[in-house]
Design a binder for these strands. Sequence first.
DNA 1: CTATGGACCTGAATGC
DNA 2: TGCATTCAGGTCCATA
Length: 271
Amino acid sequence: MPELPEVEVTRRSFAQHIRGARILDARAGLPLRWPLGLDPRQLAGMTVQDVDRRGKYLLLQLDQGVLLMHLGMSGSLSFRGDLPPPGRHDHFDLVTTQGTLRLNDPRRFGAVVWSADLQTDPAQKLLASLGTEPLGDAFDPAAFHARLRTRRAPIKQVLLAGDVVVGVGNIYASEALFLAGIRPTTRADRLSRARADRLHAAIREVLGRAVERGGSTLRNFSNAAGESGHFQAEASVYGRAGQPCLRCATPLRQIRQGQRSTFFCPVCQRA
DNA sequence: CTATGGACCTGAATGC
DNA sequence: TGCATTCAGGTCCATA
């Protein structure tokens, strides 16, 4: 479900509602990717000051530390006043004076981690090697190209790795490369400055548009208020193997890169 | 240091 | 119908 646009859309859907809330209680279900780092009950009494995002992490800024949340592959958040009892895949509840934030995550690749201080804690490691924010001012074509020139792996895998630029997941990587006219298997260090520029623009375009549209919905993405997004109808190549390219009608191809599916047009993305 | 494959976990879809 | 296999939007870790 969640690449950067889905995480950002989720953030926007509940940030203003939870801001300023006092935590009344918290409850953890089955283990997630990492331990919470404290007894959930100890969160009671803390205040949620703001909700930020770094890459695909949400950062709930508390008056005592920060709560990092990651949605993994299958996670989603809901925020509402009255909540039914936790279901089979509800693995974290944050009960506040303004509503309850609930993480549902069937595969449990997601995480909720409390850190007293991101500067010094072990949790800092999670954010330490993240790349540039693609929608921010710091995402600069020249610097992007310079970073790509140090990598010999296929460009698709470099995008997914997240240490050059964050937030580009498996769907949007294929979409951005299609938009830029770049073959996903091309070595990152072989991209000219001009082609790196096109990719830079394509990444911003694809992610920015998805945020505006409310996140993708290849399966069932919905924000924390339960509203679903519309990106599915807009995928140009992802999930369309064998179907005609929207630009040239050539049948789209699907390949495997690092055990992930990649989709591209063999004509529009020649190199 | 970089690159690659395996690991984590559940559920849906597909194949025989 | 039943059972096995494959695949799924992420990313850390061990190994080469």
